[in-house]
Design a protein around this nucleic acid. Sequence first.
DNA 1: CCGAACTGTATCAAAAAGAGTTACAAAAGG
DNA 2: CCTTTTGTAACTCTTTTTGATACAGTTCGG
Lengths: 139, 139
Amino acid sequence: MAANSQFAVAIHVLTILAKAGDERVKSDYIAGSVNTNPVVIRRLLSNLQEGGLVISHVGAGGGTTLAKQPKDIHLSEVYKALPCGEVFALHSKEPNQDCPIGKNMAAFLCGLQKEIDKSIEEKLRQYTLRDVIENIEEA
Amino acid sequence: MAANSQFAVAIHVLTILAKAGDERVKSDYIAGSVNTNPVVIRRLLSNLQEGGLVISHVGAGGGTTLAKQPKDIHLSEVYKALPCGEVFALHSKEPNQDCPIGKNMAAFLCGLQKEIDKSIEEKLRQYTLRDVIENIEEA
DNA sequence: CCGAACTGTATCAAAAAGAGTTACAAAAGG
DNA sequence: CCTTTTGTAACTCTTTTTGATACAGTTCGG
């Protein structure tokens, strides 16, 4: 399982929270719905909380709610809140430094990565959590 | 090293081929420049050949050349020729089927993946191998 | 103020995928 | 034919993500 599925799970989790409204949802419940371990969910919620998308409450009667209305949560925010990998990785080993090409390659590719990431975010900014929910319900 | 660096290596390899012009370049030489194993390079060239970007010749005096001019090789073609992973993976385990949300989630996310992939390709289509070479040389 | 119910997080094991390596068949050229 | 070189199969090593266990710290209700 070396492919990052956090974004997919995050969308799922946020949808559950949206449906719950003001009610605090426990990680155990979410884990049951998503069919995974509660810790995996808590780790994810921890990232989403840092991104200002959800609010978690510790202790008895605790749980998590959305920090904003679904219509105000853009998928780009979800993407940015998570440690998603880059689209492509740089060379795993440094290229041979005698090779004149390798020397300036990294800088170019790094810039390209940033541009691509920006494209992805722009695309994801077009959708909000509300769009997702509507799309799923009408299906 | 579970992050896919094939795109980065491919750009590097294509640049080497561009510099060699009509001369056939051997996988051993490329591997030396990129600092990896010749088989890794041959696997990569195999993909690039399927994508119509390079031409490899078997046997003594064999090697690889570009199939087109650098200015006619768009980075989107490179991307498409390689088995690059998706930006995000779907759930690793199927969501709980009792969960009404999970059921239609996969379809939505799959469509989103395709859209993002299209964005990436559009961005990469703006650059050709010649742009890469110019960018690297002036740096 | 005590105990139950949660989250937050550290730590470890399991699983998956890429990268590196070895080995060898098949093709081409002299 | 004999050498050179690609194409590919098969295996190991390493890295990353996911899953699981454990426990400290917080909050609420008696």
